[in-house]
């Protein structure tokens, strides 16, 4: 479990410092440390079910750790995107299985926050890269937990020849300037406001990596969901 330095590529060149490589290595280590932390938190929650489950502070602790973890995973993904070593290896998956497996990891946290959650997925097969989509959903669910009042809905359906996976909440919804249905470019990231939309950039990049013939994936943000709050949708060809 101690992070083995040789388990990820280490480039021992005499070249001047490659800062993004150094950063990526550091991020990698931090991500693994957080993994340990999260594991311990899960253990603690299991052992002290009665006292901890309702503790707002404990839930915040776990939520923030989850958020950091998923941010770091995304950072690594963006690093690989930059290195041109990230691509989508699509396989056919049974969508309801994938979603329910995915959501199960969030069960303790959702219950701790007293957020109701359900999946409304058609019995469909879909083509996508499991690992990449997991990264996107982690971030989206984290966001939904943050902005929702009481419930989260995960949906999946076939629309216009696309597989559409949606995450809805009953919060205040996306502000006008964020609603969109296109690909985000790196330039559109706003580093001044504190909210960098890094997650959206990553999601958009992952969607774009999914391709069928000339059709590519994209994301949509709107407020027209069943729960009245924000709706995140990833459309995959």
């Amino acid at each position: 479990m101690t992070e083995d330095k040789t388990s990820h590529p280490v480039f021992a060149d005499d070249n001047p410092i490659n800062f993004s490589m150094v950063l990526a290595s550091a991020v990698h280590d931090m991500k693994n440390s957080l993994g340990m932390l999260l594991h311990s938190l899960d253990g603690l929650r299991d052992e002290h079910q009665d006292t901890l489950s309702g503790s707002a502070r404990f839930n915040t602790l776990q939520y923030e750790a989850e958020r950091l973890h998923s941010d770091l995973v995304q950072l690594l993904g963006i690093y690989r995107l930059d290195e041109k070593t990230l691509s989508a290896h699509s396989e056919e998956h049974f969508v309801p299985d994938f979603l329910s497996q995915h959501l199960s990891r969030y069960r303790p946290l959702l219950e701790g926050h007293e957020v109701n959650y359900r999946i409304e997925a058609d019995d469909i097969q879909g083509f996508f890269d499991e690992d990449l989509l997991t990264g996107v959903l982690n971030n989206t669910i984290n966001n939904a937990i943050r902005y929702t009042k009481s419930q989260i809905l995960i949906t999946a359906s076939q629309r216009e020849q696309y597989l559409v996976i949606g995450v809805e909440d009953d919060g205040d919804g996306y502000p006008e300037q964020m609603r969109r249905a296109d690909t985000l470019s790196f330039k559109s990231l706003n580093f001044d406001t504190g909210s960098t939309s890094l997650g959206l950039f990553f999601a958009s990049s992952v969607a774009h990596l999914h391709q069928d013939g000339s059709r590519r994936g994209f994301i949509k943000l709107h407020n027209e969901g069943k729960l009245g709050g924000g709706v995140f949708e990833i459309w995959l060809p």
Partner: peptide, 16 residues
Amino acid sequence: LTKPINRAMLEKRLGA
């Protein structure tokens, strides 16, 4: 199985 792993996730994953 990607870490971190918790009980709910392990149950679901193993089940599948």
